[in-house]
């Protein structure tokens, strides 16, 4: 290939490119679509993680639907209050304050606590293990420990502990609910950050069976239900349930020590802000 043909190639391609570019510029001017300017403004304030927590494919769609009036600002669980307030100003609305929602891992059956039925050599994925016989733990309800929730988290708010259980970083967690959807066993639940009392077990086996599979299983003895005011806690399928509506959100007086297996836990919040807030509340 000689120099001339290289020059011709460059010229012809450059010329064609310039020609089409001009055409597109003109077309863009001519065919420009007027968009509500608020859509762009709102979209820039949204988290932009496209996590899908609102039920729409991405943040741009959320902005469009918000401006179109099809969805509330609180529909985005990830937005913090500042961004919400700013969006509300753009939309000319009152800011709605929603309580922060975080993911809670409701299983304590790590590698140490749970009984094993054998060795699992399959694909290192919770879904695969769940389908093919339930991993290496005897418990049919608890955490499988292959970290699918960790992989699903778009905010890096989850990690696996040494004991093989996922741990939620309360500050980074935005409550998008991706991990809840990712867990094939429904071990992760979304809760307002003020809920600190949990029945951290999902085992619905009979007392005898659940006692055998995990030392921290809720065995369904019902001691906790009898220890509190009627209606605050109930037994369902051999599992204690807390009724947060009845009790309000301050659950700290419920008797965790009644539980013989420590399946009921009282979370000490890891968030500094939160603990300061709580200390203030205690003083009052």
């Amino acid at each position: 290939m000689d120099l001339a043909s290289i020059a011709v190639s460059m010229l012809s391609m450059g010329g064609l490119g310039a020609l089409f570019a001009t055409g597109l510029v003109l077309a863009n001017k001519k065919l420009y679509v007027e968009e509500d300017p608020r859509i762009g403004q709102v979209a820039s304030l949204l988290p932009g993680a496209n996590c899908g927590g609102c039920g729409l494919p991405g943040c741009a769609n959320f902005a469009e639907n918000l401006v179109g009036g099809n969805i509330e600002i609180s529909g985005c669980p990830v937005c913090n209050d500042e961004a919400r307030a700013e969006i509300a100003t753009i939309m000319g609305l009152e800011a709605q304050k929603g309580e922060k929602i975080v993911a809670r891992v409701l299983c304590q059956g790590g590698n140490y606590e749970s009984a094993k039925k054998g060795e699992y050599l399959g694909i290192e994925s919770c879904t695969a293990a769940h389908i093919s016989g339930g991993g290496d733990k005897l418990c049919l309800y608890g955490c499988l420990g292959y970290g699918e929730c960790v992989d699903s988290c778009p905010f890096d708010a989850l990690h696996m502990s040494e004991n093989g259980l996922p741990v939620v970083d309360e500050d980074t967690c935005t409550g998008c609910g991706n991990c809840e959807d990712a867990c094939p066993r429904g071990v992760i639940g979304m809760h307002p950050v003020s809920h600190t009392l949990f029945v951290a077990c999902k085992n619905e086996d009979s007392p005898k069976d659940s006692r055998q599979v995990c030392i921290k299983a809720c065995v369904g003895c019902g001691l906790c239900v009898r220890g509190v005011e009627e209606g605050l806690m109930t037994m369902e399928n051999n599992l204690a349930r807390i009724d947060y509506h009845l009790y309000g959100t301050d659950c700290r007086e419920l008797p965790t020590e009644k539980c013989s297996t420590n399946a009921i836990i009282l979370l000490e919040s890891v968030s500094k802000e939160k603990s300061v807030e709580r200390a203030e509340m205690a003083e009052v």
Partner: peptide, 22 residues
């Protein structure tokens, strides 16, 4: 005419991409 048939892929893709934009 310029004996640069070798550029057919490049130029065709250029045409198609611009048209799709349009």
């Amino acid at each position: 005419p310029f004996h640069v048939e070798i550029l057919e892929y490049v130029s065709f893709i250029l045409v198609i991409a611009s048209l799709v934009q349009l």
